[in-house]
Nucleic acid binder design. Sequence first.
DNA 1: GCCAACGTTGGC
DNA 2: GCCAACGTTGGC
Length: 157
Amino acid sequence: MKKKYWLMKSEPGEYSIQDLKESEGGIDYWDGVRNYQARNFMRDDMKIGDRVLFYHSGKRPAVVGTAKVVATGYPDHTAWDPQSNHFDKRSTPENPVWFMVDIQFESEFSRPLPLKELRQISGLENMMLLRKGMRLSIQPVTRKEFDIVVKAGKGKS
DNA sequence: GCCAACGTTGGC
DNA sequence: GCCAACGTTGGC
């Protein structure tokens, strides 16, 4: 099984890389995705050992670190919790609609690598994140792109 | 705060 | 099955 590479977006006010880092064992579940394409990636394509670029959207859009997939897709229980703001009555334990994976904190860049800088790095011209109108919260990334971003992120201080 | 791009919903 | 209206995302 070939290792794959991903980018996962989160509003840091909602869930940041620090939250992941500070969770038990650095492991947490990626709940709340309510987009079918992103769901399909988690349910069908993300495998244990896949690497992840952790992206903060919002005020300071930037890649902030890396993580790895430690559990493959399973039902997102927040969808059938009426108290959750990700509640979706169409999803039930018997017939789950939404899925999530577990990821584990791996590294945090010494400083966030802003979206603006990503646009200027050669080799990233075709990166999905940089395409106009791209809102998908989970995106496949090529190995090359992953390596370039990590190298640029680690090189910062 | 604005607004473009996108996904979803619902009337027909 | 089309498409207008609406809500959301997310960069600027």
